[in-house]
Amino acid sequence: MRADRVFAYGATLGFLGDLLAGDPRRGHPVAAFGRAAGALERRLWRDDRASGAVFTALCAGGAVGGAALAQRAVRSCAALSVALTAAATWSVLGGESLAREARLIGAALEAGDLAAARARLPHLCGRDPQALDAAGIARAVVESVAENTSDAVVGALVWGAAGGVPGLVGFRAVNTLDAMVGHRSPRFLRFGWAAARLDDVAGWPGARLTAGLAALAGPDPRGALRVWRRDAALHPSPNAGPVEAAFAGALRLRLGGTLSYAGRTEHRPVLGADLPPPTAADIARAVRLSRRVSALALATAATARLTAAAIRRARRGGSAVSGGHQPKGGPK
């Protein structure tokens, strides 16, 4: 079976596996990678960029290399190749866990249980829940749904289409390293620089695809494009900016503003300043948009891989014809 079909079938199966089963409670491969990376970080940590670059290269390179060896080992068997791609896709996607956590927080807010919503928020994002009221939690959830649609689903599918299993695994490894050491804390300001910059590069195509699909699939495509063009560059993150701005416009909501991480307050620009702020009811709308974007991203990634392979085959066929030997002499 051709590699393009292996990816299309395997990615679809893995996507459905995530949709139906979500993440396992124990033994998740990404969690195992995180533990190994954490142990290596404690051995290699120095307060400089060079040490962080070595750490990032070892972790990301090891993940990609291991995935490449696994893909090579099964490439002669179509069924095993599809199974490996499906397993890798399921392990790196987090769409169902994202939707589940968002819905639980939304349900708590709609029931008026602010304490339960605050207790649940750390499962979704790293903001200080005690500093947030109901409106602040609703905004945090919508913003997290938007950003993690790109990080936990679309970006992985984009790199899977480009690089197969190594692309899937490599993207999740880089994204995990950024979450571990890429933040601007005193310990990781320099050590995590390489991981943060690599995550910016790896996330660039998925973020733009996410924003475009949000505009296409949302209830207000023109509004999504308008807020995206006007406000995305205001965001400090080159990738979260387009995604959150497109979601803000598509859902007709105002996002951004002051937030608190680990006792540190940040004042971020407002996205969609002329729109109303999110409420608990808007969390379900954000989840539905995230699901539509994720499904369209799967279709886009599989189609792109199949189309690129078809173009390559057509070019090889054309080259063979044009380079072939014509029979000598004229017609007899």
Score class of each variant (00 low, 15 high):
residue 61 G to M: 02
residue 213 L to Q: 14
residue 8 A to L: 12
residue 332 K to Y: 04
residue 84 L to N: 03
residue 244 E to D: 10
residue 94 G to N: 06
residue 160 G to N: 06
residue 66 G to P: 08
residue 290 S to I: 03
residue 47 D to C: 03
residue 226 R to N: 05
residue 204 W to A: 14
residue 79 A to G: 09
residue 331 P to G: 10
residue 26 R to H: 01
residue 148 N to R: 08
residue 75 R to Y: 08
residue 286 A to T: 13
residue 162 A to D: 08
residue 227 V to A: 01
residue 66 G to C: 11
residue 18 D to V: 06
residue 252 R to N: 09
residue 3 A to T: 12
residue 192 G to I: 02
residue 331 P to N: 11
residue 298 L to K: 03
residue 203 G to C: 12
residue 186 P to K: 11
residue 211 A to R: 04
residue 119 A to I: 09
residue 299 A to K: 09
residue 33 F to W: 12
residue 203 G to H: 02
residue 262 A to V: 08
residue 49 R to Y: 00
residue 276 P to V: 06
residue 256 G to Q: 14
residue 99 A to S: 15
residue 232 A to T: 02
residue 109 L to A: 11
residue 53 A to R: 09
residue 320 A to K: 05
residue 117 A to R: 07
residue 218 G to A: 09
residue 81 S to V: 00
residue 3 A to R: 12
residue 238 P to W: 00
residue 75 R to N: 10
residue 273 A to M: 05
residue 217 A to C: 15
residue 133 D to I: 06
residue 125 C to Q: 04
residue 223 G to A: 07
residue 219 P to T: 13
residue 180 M to I: 12
residue 26 R to A: 04
residue 38 G to V: 08
residue 127 R to A: 07
residue 277 P to V: 07
residue 93 L to R: 01
residue 27 G to K: 13
residue 159 W to T: 06
residue 63 A to R: 13
residue 231 D to P: 12
residue 53 A to G: 10
residue 214 A to R: 01
residue 236 P to K: 12
residue 154 V to D: 00
residue 296 L to M: 03
residue 186 P to N: 07
residue 141 V to G: 03
residue 224 A to H: 03
residue 114 L to W: 13
residue 34 G to A: 05
residue 331 P to W: 14
residue 183 H to G: 08
residue 318 G to D: 01
residue 89 T to E: 08
residue 166 P to C: 11
residue 140 A to H: 00
residue 55 F to T: 12
residue 329 G to S: 05
residue 167 G to H: 02
residue 181 V to L: 00
residue 64 V to P: 07
residue 234 L to S: 15
residue 113 D to A: 13
residue 132 L to Q: 02
residue 106 G to Y: 00
residue 30 V to K: 04
residue 158 V to A: 01
residue 215 A to V: 11
residue 323 G to L: 07
residue 249 G to E: 02
residue 300 T to R: 13
residue 187 R to T: 10
residue 119 A to M: 06
residue 257 G to R: 04
residue 163 G to I: 11
residue 228 W to Y: 15
residue 305 R to W: 03
residue 38 G to P: 05
residue 314 A to C: 08
residue 7 F to W: 15
residue 319 S to H: 04
residue 10 G to R: 01
residue 72 R to K: 14
residue 139 R to P: 05
residue 98 L to A: 10
residue 19 L to Q: 09
residue 239 N to T: 15
residue 178 D to F: 07
residue 16 L to R: 08
residue 313 R to Y: 04
residue 143 E to T: 10
residue 158 V to W: 00
residue 51 S to V: 07
residue 257 G to T: 09
residue 238 P to Y: 01
residue 46 R to D: 00
residue 213 L to H: 09
residue 239 N to D: 08
residue 111 A to S: 15
residue 68 A to V: 10
residue 244 E to H: 11
residue 237 S to L: 06
residue 303 T to F: 05
residue 265 T to Q: 03
residue 274 D to Y: 13
residue 262 A to H: 13
residue 307 T to L: 12
residue 275 L to I: 13
residue 188 F to D: 14
residue 177 L to T: 11
residue 199 D to Y: 10
residue 171 F to E: 04
residue 30 V to N: 06
residue 295 A to I: 02
residue 278 P to C: 07
residue 264 R to K: 13
residue 33 F to E: 04
residue 207 A to H: 03
residue 10 G to M: 00
residue 26 R to Q: 08
residue 233 A to S: 14
residue 208 R to A: 02
residue 5 R to N: 02
residue 285 R to G: 06
residue 49 R to T: 10
residue 215 A to K: 07
